Simulated scan of single mutants.
Amino acid sequence: MKSEGFETVQIQTTSGGTIQIRVRYYRRACDRRNGKRHKGLYAGLALLGIHDRCTLVLAAMVSAWSALLSSFEEVRQVLCDHGVDLNVKVIRKLAYRYAERARVVQQMGLIPLNEKDNLQGRRVVISADGGRTRLREKKRGPKTSKGRGRYHGAWREPKLLIIYVVDAHGKQEKSFTPFIDGGFNDPDGLFQLLESYLESLCIQEADKVLFVADGAHWIWNRVPDLIKALGLNPERVYELLDFYHAVEHLGKVAGLRKSWSAKERKSWVSKQRRFLLKGESETVVQVVQTLCRGRNSKAIKTERDYFVRNRHRLAFPTVKALNLPIGSGAIESSIRRVVNLRLKGPCIFWYRENAEKILMLRSYYKSGRWNCLKQMANSHISLLAA
């Protein structure tokens, strides 16, 4: 890059005022065309961690509020109350760029950890699930009468992961802050992200590792390869179907028996539920098999197959005896807090890349690892995204 000389740059501060700094401006020769100003870099500011003409504290504050509050307009109002006058466009840019810089460091596996993040001899629970968000996807055809591009408001599935630690009594350890992250990539992308986190945490040193989730094919089809790639001891790894999802499927089977009364359905579900807790999953499969007749036999077979393909993940007594969770409530709660309360709502449509950035910011904020994200966003390595 070649220096273009010194320029005066105004830096926005958290007090609402600005400070002027004289700094060199650099840009590549290939970006200099016809004397026009093209993208470049204030190298001195970047080395100080100052991006987008605002201080580190202001960028972190704007990004945190963008993750916490329900809209960028609310962020603008809160900033105005604190004496900082920024428009929505600037706020959006600051938050997106902050997430970009943090993601660059995370993808390089340079996640800042502390001594409490050591998994040696601990009991680790890993779970994944998907939510629903509407994305703005381009639609072919002429523009509207106002010159705007047409788009589809397609429902897409953001996929989320969570890693946390439980104590000997099965309660979540407060000393270990969970990791929550995700994106809109395909399932392989999420599992690559999960693998990078587990490698950084040295999951091989854990005493026990539990994978618990619902019956989604995209999750369980990839868990064996993940275990093999991480080099985990199979004797220390447990795969478990979420107990409460399993009971929900029993309810669907009972609901398909139109000749049963509500009392009979409830009694039947309670009986099969007890069989699952006792570890008699084969009995449940056989009972469901006997119901596969009549007009609803095809639908009942679908529910039967759910239990058949997950029969080796129904060891609820074994896992419960180890004081490990038999439900995936942690990831279900994360979907609600991270996705539903920020990315999902009436008339809300996101561009995929922007939704992924807010998803990362909110995931770290809600998991309690905001300081970790700040370290990544302010790292000199993040200059790759500058």
Rank of each mutant, 00 (worst) to 15 (best):
P158L: 10
T8L: 05
A246K: 03
D188F: 10
L232F: 05
A206K: 01
R265M: 00
M108G: 04
R140V: 06
S15Q: 03
R37C: 04
S70P: 00
I331S: 11
A59Q: 15
A213T: 04
S259C: 06
L58M: 02
L86R: 00
G368P: 06
A43V: 09
A355T: 04
G182V: 08
D31K: 11
Y96M: 01
L48D: 14
F243G: 08
K93Y: 07
T55M: 01
V165Q: 15
E280Q: 02
E282K: 10
K263A: 15
L119G: 00
A229E: 10
L241P: 02
G231C: 01
I335Y: 09
R337W: 13
K263Y: 10
G44D: 15
V84P: 13
A315S: 13
R352V: 07
K252N: 08
I19F: 07
F349T: 06
R265Y: 00
L383K: 03
F211C: 10
L341G: 06
R309C: 08
L56V: 14
K298N: 12
R103T: 07
A262M: 13
F211T: 13
D129S: 02
R336P: 06
G16P: 10
L94N: 04
V124S: 03
L373M: 08
R265S: 01
A46C: 11
E235W: 02
R132Y: 08
Q120D: 05
V165K: 12
D85R: 10
L119D: 00
G215S: 00
T8A: 11
G170I: 14
V269A: 15
A168E: 13
L69R: 07
P346S: 14
K301S: 05
V287Q: 14
Q107S: 04
G149P: 02
Q20F: 06
F349W: 14
G255T: 00
Y365V: 04
G16T: 10
Y351R: 15
L250V: 08
H380M: 08
S333N: 15
G327C: 10
S71V: 05
L361C: 10
A67E: 04
K320R: 15
D225K: 09
R309Q: 14
D85L: 11
H312C: 04
R304P: 04
A168Q: 05
K36V: 14
R53S: 08
R122C: 05
Y42N: 12
N118I: 05
R140D: 15
F184I: 12
I91N: 09
V23L: 01
Y98L: 02
V223P: 05
F176S: 13
S334Y: 12
R92W: 04
G189I: 14
E235V: 01
L361D: 11
A355V: 02
R337K: 14
F72L: 11
Q106H: 00
D186Y: 15
L322T: 03
L119V: 01
A254G: 06
D225I: 05
F211H: 12
W268M: 01
V288Q: 06
R22D: 12
K366F: 09
D85N: 14
R313A: 00
S259E: 14
V288K: 05
V288I: 15
C30W: 07
V287H: 14
R32C: 11
E4N: 13
N185Q: 03
K89S: 10
